[in-house]
Design a binder for these strands. Structure first.
Length: 478
RNA sequence: UCCCUAGUAGCUCAGUUGGUUAGAGCGGCGGACUGUUAAUCCGUAGGUCAUAGGUUCAAGUCCUAUCUGGGGAGCCA
């Protein structure tokens, strides 16, 4: 008999038929005559209720059926007599694929803390919460490819090992095959990387953007979607040492086109989640609502599905950096001295400032543009005022910066001048500068932190809970 | 990296101004129960109190260091 997925079975279309299901036990409830097994196979958040007659199978069998035991069950699908579900399976044959000793299996049929499950990250997929998160994560990854494919963007695989240390996005992880105890040395006593595998010093990428620009200035529109590495000692709920980033790069796009794309892209993904992941979203929402009960009323956030719809239905606020500073300076919050960090034109906005703008002042996503050139990267296009660059940050409530992007400097002389001023090695970056030497065009791009976006869609609070095996300072378990 | 905070049973936690034999709920196990919904009821076994050192007649409780978790900040996606 062909195995059916539980998602399919729960539609009820097979009522009256014999079906075969395979999955893992979530809970088993027993009584003298009949056992109820809640079976889950990962195809949906919902379980299939299996009804098994004790007399038919014998008591002994049920002793081996515990939480997380793997089963194959054949039976007749019938309308449920109980009130919790529409259909249930009357078992006629039960095969145990793998037992799970309840004395040793760490995940119990009860609520666990996210911290505990994080320490058991290899087993947390078997919980309702994490199965929902990872189904949504999959759906979003799929939707990302869908979106760009529909728009004629090409998926470009930029390198994970890079020989350039000038990407300028943070501390890098070194990639080497040299003997750590006894590396070859130069005459000056430094490590001699010419003897290393690649004949030079190499690292894990912190961004595929520079290579992405090479692709965009020939293919037109490209995007990257891959792992990214930052060796920063960041210990927060929104940072990982290994995370996934989506970086579209588009020829002939100016800053406004870039903003339009970013907003349309985010809304497409949110709509996709609402259209395709409603069961999981509703489960996560319910879970969140229960947590929110413990918070004071004013700190409670919007219900998850409502929040997603809200973002979908409202335009993002587009705001000049200069105007943002003025809003902050004129705020009661500022006048009462409630900001910890100073506010003045030229300073980088702190989390508290971004949060004020997004969560208190506008109460919706904000795109901030035209930042002072001194606080932004070398490749961003200098505006006509000579003071600001065509940068854009998309700020989301509860998350902060979810997208960072810009129109790129396409003028060769201006770019070189910026690199020299900021100490970027021009010689080494010759390959990158070729985009400006030969057929240079206005172009733009941005980077979306995949996990930060998943945080927003799932309503989860810690970035370590939206990636399967989180890598953070002092932690590379599993 | 800095600030705050926590580490007690498999899990979530209680444990008074330092004072006999460290508790509860859930989970596990055994039993009861004619259809349950994280079933219910009865019974039962689980602990080197994170680690190391110190103060004291006496330390789960006080002090110091280290490790680990959580929250916040910085860096950013």
């Amino acid at each position: 008999m062909k195995r059916l997925k539980i998602k399919e079975i729960l539609t009820g279309e097979q009522i009256g038929q014999q079906v075969l299901v395979k999955g893992w036990v979530r809970t088993k409830r027993g009584s003298k005559n009949v056992n109820f097994i809640a079976l889950n196979d990962g195809s949906t958040i919902n379980n299939l209720q299996v009804v098994a007659d004790v007399e038919k199978f014998g008591e002994e069998l049920f002793k081996d059926i515990n939480t997380s035991t793997a089963l194959g069950i054949t039976g007749t699908l019938v309308e449920s007599q109980g009130s919790g579900q529409k259909v249930e399976l009357n078992a006629t044959e039960i095969v145990i694929y793998g037992k799970a000793d309840p004395d040793k299996y760490p995940i119990q049929p009860k609520k666990h803390s996210l911290e505990f499950l994080r320490e058991n990250a290899h087993l947390r997929f078997r919980t309702a919460t994490f199965s929902a998160v990872f189904r949504i994560r999959h759906a979003m990854a799929f939707a990302i490819h869908n979106y760009f494919n529909q728009k004629g963007f090409y998926y470009l695989h930029t390198p994970i090992i890079t020989g350039s240390d000038a990407e300028g996005a943070g501390q890098m992880f070194r990639v080497t095959t040299l003997d750590a105890k006894n590396p070859p040395l130069t005459e000056e006593g430094d490590v001699d990387f010419t003897a290393d595998f690649f004949g030079k010093s190499t690292n894990l990428t912190v961004s595929g953007q520079l290579e992405g620009e090479l692709g965009a200035t020939a293919l037109g529109e490209i995007y990257t979607f891959g792992p990214t590495f930052r060796a920063e000692n960041s210990n927060t709920t929104r940072h990982l040492a290994e995370f996934w980033m989506i970086e579209p790069e588009m020829a002939f796009y100016e800053l406004k086109d870039n903003m339009d794309l970013a907003e349309d892209f985010l809304k497409y993904l949110i709509r996709y989640a609402l259209d395709n992941c409603m069961d999981d979203l509703q489960f996560l929402s319910k879970r969140l609502q229960e947590e929110e009960k413990n918070k004071p009323t004013e700190e409670r956030s919007m219900e998850l599905v409502e929040k997603l719809r809200f973002v979908l239905e409202n335009d993002f606020e587009r705001l000049l950096y200069t105007d943002a500073i003025n809003i902050l300076l004129e705020s009661k919050h500022y006048k009462k001295g409630k900001f910890q960090f100073p506010v003045a034109w030229g300073v980088d906005l702190q989390s508290e400032h971004e949060r004020y703008l997004v969560e208190k002042h506008f109460k919706k996503p904000v795109i901030l543009i035209n930042y002072p050139k001194d606080i932004k990267a070398f490749y961003m296009k200098l505006n006509d005022d000579g003071k600001t660059v065509a940068a854009m940050d998309v700020l989301f409530p509860g998350i902060g910066e979810i997208i960072g992007g810009s129109q790129r400097e396409d003028n060769y002389d201006k770019l070189v001048a910026r690199m020299e001023a900021m100490g970027v090695p021009v010689e080494e970056m010759s390959w990158y500068l070729d985009t400006r030497r030969f057929g240079s065009v206005p172009h733009s791009g941005f980077g979306l932190g995949f996990e930060r976006f998943i945080l927003f869609v799932t309503g989860m609070g810690n970035i370590r809970d939206v990636i399967a095996f989180p890598r953070t300072p002092k932690n590379a378990e599993f």
